[in-house]
């Protein structure tokens, strides 16, 4: 279940090839991407994100207090 969420978020960020770095910060994933245009915001929301903030290649995905777990699940997929 948790892994499904991680893989859905990873896919919505453009897949593993698009992720430069993911860092959890309590309630959000701070993601640095190769190509910010590949972000699929509706898919992130569908995967459970409370909100998405994007500035160019830096995207913050607000996932709530599970951020640390989701980030490590995503790192396992990278």
């Amino acid at each position: 279940m948790a892994d499904d969420k991680a893989s859905a978020i990873l896919a919505a960020l453009g897949g593993q090839g698009n992720v430069v770095e993911i860092e959890p910060c309590i309630t959000r994933l701070r993601c640095e991407l190769e190509d910010g245009a590949k972000v699929d915001e509706p898919a992130l929301k569908k995967a459970g994100a409370h909100g998405v903030m994007q500035q160019g290649t830096v995207v913050q995905v607000v996932v709530g207090p599970e951020a640390d777990t989701i980030a490590s699940d995503i790192e396992d997929l990278l």
């Binding site: 309630t27 959000r28 409370h50 909100g51 903030m53 913050q60 607000v62 709530g64 207090p65």
Partner: peptide
Amino acid sequence: DPVFSQSMV
């Protein structure tokens, strides 16, 4: 920070 000001969490 909108995460907090908009009570996202």
